[in-house]
Design a protein around this nucleic acid. Sequence first.
DNA 1: TTATGTGCAAACAGTTTGCACATAA
DNA 2: TTATGTGCAAACTGTTTGCACATAA
Lengths: 153, 153
Amino acid sequence: MLYSTAYLEKRLADLQEKLRSEGLRITPQRRAILRALVMEQGHPTAEELHRSLLPEYPTMSLATVYKTITMLKHLGEVLELEFSRDNRFDGHNPRPHPHLICQGCGRILDPDVPGLAEMIDTLKESTGFSVTTHRLDFYGLCPDCKSNNKKDG
Amino acid sequence: MLYSTAYLEKRLADLQEKLRSEGLRITPQRRAILRALVMEQGHPTAEELHRSLLPEYPTMSLATVYKTITMLKHLGEVLELEFSRDNRFDGHNPRPHPHLICQGCGRILDPDVPGLAEMIDTLKESTGFSVTTHRLDFYGLCPDCKSNNKKDG
DNA sequence: TTATGTGCAAACAGTTTGCACATAA
DNA sequence: TTATGTGCAAACTGTTTGCACATAA
């Protein structure tokens, strides 16, 4: 997940433009939440976003974070990863895509999975379903956590 | 998901034997919950299980349903599908496997996904992760709901 | 100026837990 | 007989909502 600063600034500007074009107001809170969602590498929870914003915006409420994320989901600009506790949000790539989750450090990567589109086509053919979206999470240990485990064990 | 009655009865007997061998008590409630989990086609929620048991076991509490499911998860005999609301449980195949979920009728199928093992091997190689488990859900419309949609539209 | 957004606190829903009572072994 | 399980109600946690006040446009 290595986006250039220029790329991230462009994404942020595009998001603001989208709000504007939808007639939605651009408040300091929304600007801050957009920025945090875009700049934050990784897939933060609502709590994490809120916590990271509090120092600079001491009156920022968690409810506003949730409301803004909900708005962005409806605009199709944020992907929500639902876990049974602590959902996480992807403000970079709002289209469904596979995730690779390290059970050691919690890191979430967006790996390339070659052949996925073909797999879904096959699935459609064999089942008669129309497959419109998906949620694909692979769990394991990242290289770092694998070697740490060996040291500890 | 078309298991024969004989197969389901065997699964039920195996589960009871597992409890016995672990020194866990076989109470009427547990017997009933095991039976419901095994016989219920599909992937019921805790509430659905509880509701289906209430007529025959009017004093059955939702807490006991949860506690029994938790026990079965620890024994590795039930797979929990976590959604942000209303988790669902698979008492047939407790190993992680792909699901195909109809957004029309809520039906959940366990499709064959050829090439999945190879895909995971490739993922391991390209990322250096050890991939130990996964959660793979494909969403769409089943053939029935597709044609109903056409009629309604 | 006024429709929209914010922040607080309360509500909500699914799940878990503490504890007195019941019961399988 | 007694360690384990049950059922109730309360607690918990992440998320949503209602409403008075604030503010972007």
